[in-house]
């Protein structure tokens, strides 16, 4: 237990809900990003997977929408300490997108319009744990929240769910992304409270 703050009682408003350590509940949908919001039209958006051999797989908006979609309802946890429960998205599973991609890579670096990057182990993108989401709560994903398409990897802190996602580099070696080179944890498991380097 930490140092007791004299006179602090706190507000145990979570009730029975179990949250990752250090998180609090919000009903809002706060925004975290490092710069201006890129505006990417659906007609210009494309998703590109580049394997470790340089092979490229591309999907235009139209090709992407033709893929089978899923509508996961998931809890999300931001490293800035808010958690939002039961959020509903529509997107395409990474299992679907990567089904025909031949790779021996262990790592992935997600790249976004605007230059943002974030790294993840490739296995964290598979087995029904990650999506490219294009709708939130039944509506097109707003640019502020990463539209037209963002990565959705709810089991990791939400900075791993890259907004305005443009592509995925599949890599044989881990390559830290934007926040990961700015002091944040390489993996980012909210249940282990892996916020910063050294956690």
């Amino acid at each position: 237990m930490g140092i007791v703050s004299p006179g602090f009682h706190g507000r145990r408003r979570q009730g029975d809900v179990k949250l990752p350590p250090g998180q609090y509940l919000t009903d809002d949908f706060p925004v975290l990003s490092a710069g201006p919001t890129p505006r990417v039209g659906q007609d210009e958006w494309e998703f590109v997977v580049t394997t470790e051999t340089g092979e490229r797989h591309r999907w235009s908006w139209r090709e992407f929408l033709a893929l089978p979609s899923e509508t996961p309802t998931v809890d999300i946890h931001c490293v800035t300490k808010w958690s939002k429960l039961g959020t509903t998205w529509t997107g395409v599973s990474l299992d679907t997108l990567l089904a025909d991609v031949e790779t021996t890579a262990d790592y992935a670096l997600a790249r976004s319009y605007g230059g943002y990057t974030t790294n993840l182990p490739l296995e964290d993108l598979l087995d029904g744990r990650a999506w490219l989401a294009y709708r939130f709560d039944g509506e097109d994903l707003h640019p502020e929240h990463g539209g037209p398409v963002r990565l959705l990897v709810p089991h990791l802190y939400f900075w791993k769910s890259a907004k305005w996602v443009h592509g995925l580099d599949l890599l044989t070696q881990d390559e830290p992304g934007f926040w990961e080179t700015a002091g944040y944890h390489d993996y980012g498991d909210p249940w282990l409270e892996q916020r910063y380097q050294g956690d």
Binding site: G2, V4, S5, H9, G22, T80, R195
Partner: peptide
Amino acid sequence: VDVRLTAADGYSAQRS
């Protein structure tokens, strides 16, 4: 910085 407050019963809350 992250500020962490802890109540006498161990409950804690953090903000940046």
